[in-house]
Design a protein around this nucleic acid. Structure first.
Lengths: 119, 119
DNA sequence: CAGAATATATCGTCCGACGACATATGCCGT
DNA sequence: ACGGCATATGTCGTCGGACGATATATTCTG
């Protein structure tokens, strides 16, 4: 019973890879973009997570390009990585929906007081 | 630049407290319910997180009841805890939406190949 | 020529999640 | 009456993951 799903950096990384294979630095930028600048992965986090995700079989090395001595290692989602992402996203959707509902118009057990106008 | 937002257990706990104050054991049950049984918080995780969240000012002890020698410590969301939850939920919504879009009908950069039928 | 951007990689630290264990009471079935 | 389960809170040790710092190499821009 391991509770631990794909969260935090790993979730962002898998999402970044969901539409196209990307290399490390590209993932860094994509994660920043899809989190609207809120999350800036450190390279330590990124390459560590990449190794881990690869070890778990959730991603794989698609190909390696060498452009002017600069290597580009492209990663892609594996079928099980796609499945894991889909499952986690499904889970998060229910939580997000529920939290949003409770946040938006919380009756707070009959209380009338509310710290913000209910829009 | 701390990247670290409210995720994992903390997210579930705050969500569980979003509609009404609850005590530890009640949070355990609520988290299990709103995650549809997928997440069973250990007491070690729960009370550790509770202390941490309280230290961060995101939650507070609402009141303490003693029923038949059994103590019940009720926690409630603080305004900043509510704000933190709202912010994280907003963030997650964009990520979840984007991930879902990429998962559901990913054009994959012009590729026709797709490991599952596009529904 | 200096500095930023591109690109990957390693290392040490620290915190949080987890599992296991401990304690205490009330309730239910046998 | 007793055992087991639910209720209820708490501690401790461990381990993995996130983070910050640092290193290296090349290309582009000022």
């Amino acid at each position: 019973m391991s509770n631990r799903l794909v969260q935090g950096p790993a979730l962002l990384i898998l999402t970044a890879l969901a539409d196209a294979p990307r290399h490390g630095y590209g993932i860094l930028q994509e994660v920043a973009a899809l989190s609207e600048g809120r999350v800036r992965l450190r390279t330590g986090t990124l390459y560590g997570a990449l190794d881990r995700l690869q070890g778990q079989g959730l991603i794989q090395v698609e190909r390696e390009e060498v452009v002017d001595g600069r290597a580009r290692r492209f990663y892609s989602l594996s079928p099980s990585g796609r499945a894991a992402l889909a499952e986690e996203i499904g889970h998060l959707r229910t939580v997000v929906t529920e939290a949003h509902r409770r946040l938006g118009n919380g009756p707070v057990d009959g209380l009338g007081g509310w710290e913000a106008s209910p829009a």
